[in-house]
């Protein structure tokens, strides 16, 4: 069954970073990549992210589904931008260079294509890092490290707990919907949307009721084993922060500074080769 976290246990320097470090780095990195349109920096980020991806020992086939999904999304997004704002690039860069002697409403301009190139680079700089985070972070260790950076352990634990029970609930949903179909609660594409919504309630009610039973059992089980007793708790999967963690976070924070610096030099978020 597909899971939100797709942790792949292959020891690497990236795996050895704590989950919280990776999470903070992910946020900093994405912020840096999203804020700048400086082509040089983006190309640099893309190269570094590709390198990190190999350092993390994640293979393309591990993440092929997610990559495919984002690429399709990226293509649709790019086409939409072009259709709705075919001259957005010329507005940004201030010049209008028609290519191949074409002109008209949807004629390609160098500026527009360059804008799209930057836009795609942003994606390429971010996607590997997101995938890297998802594939190299053990959810339990993530919960442990979130708690270490000051998030309440009940909240941190609920992250891990949700991941623990998602497969169970998926399985239950599947079973209930099968039994429902036998009584003609049609959930396939043959039924109209309204009928499908109606049918969904026929599955959700038993699902919610049986989940409620479960929640009572789980919370009893947790309390009986002392969950919530102390202000703190230790974590079996917890790992101490190391110098590498700090270095990684400082490195990513530098990216923000670099992005700000480039914005200052370029006089804006965009690097303009057309002037």
């Amino acid at each position: 069954m597909t899971n939100l976290f797709n942790y792949i246990d292959r020891p690497s320097p990236i795996h050895r970073l704590t989950g919280a470090t990776k999470f903070v780095c992910l946020l900093l990195w994405s912020f840096a990549a999203m804020s700048t349109y400086d082509t040089r920096m983006l190309i640099g980020l893309v190269i570094v992210s590709m390198i990190l991806f190999t350092v993390g020992r994640i293979h393309l086939k591990d993440v092929s589904f997610m990559i495919g999904f984002t690429l399709v999304f990226l293509v649709i997004n790019s086409i939409a931008i072009y259709l709705f704002a075919p001259f957005h690039g010329t507005e940004i860069y201030g010049t209008k260079t028609y290519l191949w002697g074409l002109s008209g409403r949807f004629a390609p301009t160098a500026e527009q294509l360059f804008y799209h190139f930057n836009y795609i680079l942003k994606y390429l700089a971010t996607i590997p890092i997101v995938l890297l985070f998802v594939c190299t972070t053990n959810p339990s260790e993530f919960a442990a490290s979130l708690n270490k950076i000051g998030i309440k352990y009940s909240i941190a634990y609920s992250v891990a707990l949700a991941l623990r029970y998602i497969p169970d609930i998926q399985k239950q949903y599947h079973e209930i919907s099968q039994a429902g179909q036998a009584r003609d609660i049609e959930m396939t594409k043959k039924a109209s949307l309204i009928n499908r919504l109606k049918s969904a309630s026929g599955i959700l009610i038993p699902l919610i009721l049986s989940s409620m039973d479960r929640i009572e059992i789980i919370s009893n089980a947790m309390e009986l084993r002392g969950f919530g007793k102390e202000k703190k708790r230790t974590w079996y999967m917890g790992r101490p922060f190391t110098a590498t963690d700090i270095a990684a976070m400082i490195g990513c924070a530098m990216l923000i500074l670099l992005s700000a610096y480039l914005a200052h030099v370029n006089g804006g978020r965009y690097y303009n080769p057309f002037i």
Binding site: P139, S140, A160, L161, L163, R164, D168, R214, I217, I218, N220, A221, M222, L224, R225, G226, F227, G228, K229, E230, K232, R233, T234, W235, Y236, M237
Partner: peptide, 27 residues
Amino acid sequence: LQDSDAQFVGMTVAEDIAFALENDCVD
């Protein structure tokens, strides 16, 4: 508990066994 599946709160066997110790702040 009767339902050992629902009682299983950890992601893995080791974590589930450790649960009570963690809550007791055993390091």
